[in-house]
Write a protein that binds this DNA or RNA. Structure first.
Lengths: 191, 191
DNA sequence: ATCCTTATAGTCGGATCCGACTGAAGGAGG
DNA sequence: CCTCCTTCAGTCGGATCCGACTATAAGGAT
């Protein structure tokens, strides 16, 4: 199984937007933010231009025109290619199909939870729980204002539902472990 | 809030092991694998040596000796410093305390689920569900063989419980959406 | 004795990533 | 009509990441 030539998911986002219509990179970034896709993709200007260059290098997208609008800075508009379209679909299929390949930071930290004292651990977990609850609420508001208000088909914000579902699971685990530390169910081995 | 000097969680793993006793990089890698920590940390030899170098550069660890065992290749043993210890604890606290900062690939792909046909999407989700179930089972076996058999205190494999909990949530969501596609609850807008 | 595989230990070059920066245009306030 | 702030559009240098590679030694098979 040959490794994917481009791994960065920001490239997926770019490709996805270019399926709709040609755009220049800056426009891609602002459109993604408008659509609240910035919690699915890490958008930094630096990587954006590198990513676009990589996509062009591999022939997944190509420049259409290098023009200027009024006296604004010059900019390059890109569109997707046939190859880009095929790769886009295949990539999504693969990402959906095969789990893993992610190493979440929280899991790394939990591996060394024992490095904190029981009190510190419980405290940190409790704060995490509050922040998770906040995120869940914020996402609920976004969903309400878009899908709920009939502004957008549900499929276009389905990742929001996914995020909520997973965050709720994280929340319940976090609360449970904090509780287990308090009531002594989860023991700290004395080393 | 000044950004953390070292972001790679592999550094966290290295630091964590060096808290126990001094080791050389290769030994760190093999010990992590023995302990099944390779699903929490992405361990590649390339990054390992860079990471160790970065840790040393920042004074979080320091070389103890550069010796050789028999006629084996030369190797450098490192130990943690006081500073390294403090940063280790502070880093874990921060990672536990503040959620987010992760952009899971699956969420990215789900954002463009609509790029697949309903049938293809349902099919990919179904395969994902099977693979997730497999992972959950594998983790159950690891937990059984270590914590279950009394080989290890529960706290030392607690990230396994976390992983299982989250994977189960992913699994239920994945199955539900596949079902909703089949029964037409989740509509594909005709573009 | 010789060959082959696996384990030990690490190097290196190219790709990627991203924070900090530049520079021009339009708008708001005095 | 001058200054300051924000938005637009992108560049760049340095840090990081990691797959592919080297080289030696032990352990088995032939």
């Amino acid at each position: 199984m040959a490794r994917r030539k481009i791994a960065n998911t920001l490239a997926l986002a770019v490709l996805g937007l270019l399926m709709e219509r040609p755009m220049h990179p800056y426009e891609v970034a602002s459109t993604l933010r408008e659509r609240h896709k910035d919690s699915s993709f890490k958008i930094t200007t630096g990587s954006l231009y590198d990513t676009v260059a990589a996509l062009a290098r591999h022939g997944w997208i190509e420049p259409v025109e290098t023009g200027r609008d009024g006296k604004r800075p010059e900019r390059t508009v890109y569109r997707h290619t046939e190859l880009g379209h095929r790769e886009f679909v295949a990539w999504i299929d693969e990402l959906i199909r095969t789990p893993g390949g992610d190493y979440p930071k929280f899991m790394a930290a939990v591996s060394y939870l024992g490095a904190l004292t029981p009190q510190a651990a419980a405290d940190a977990l409790t704060e995490r729980a509050e922040l998770l609850q906040q995120r869940i609420n914020e996402m609920a508001q976004v969903l309400e204002a878009t899908v709920g208000a009939g502004q957008l088909p549900r499929l276009f914000m389905i990742e929001g539902e996914y995020a909520q579902h997973v965050w709720r699971a994280e929340l319940s685990w976090t609360r449970r472990i904090a509780a287990e530390i308090h009531d002594g169910t989860l023991r700290w081995p004395d080393a």
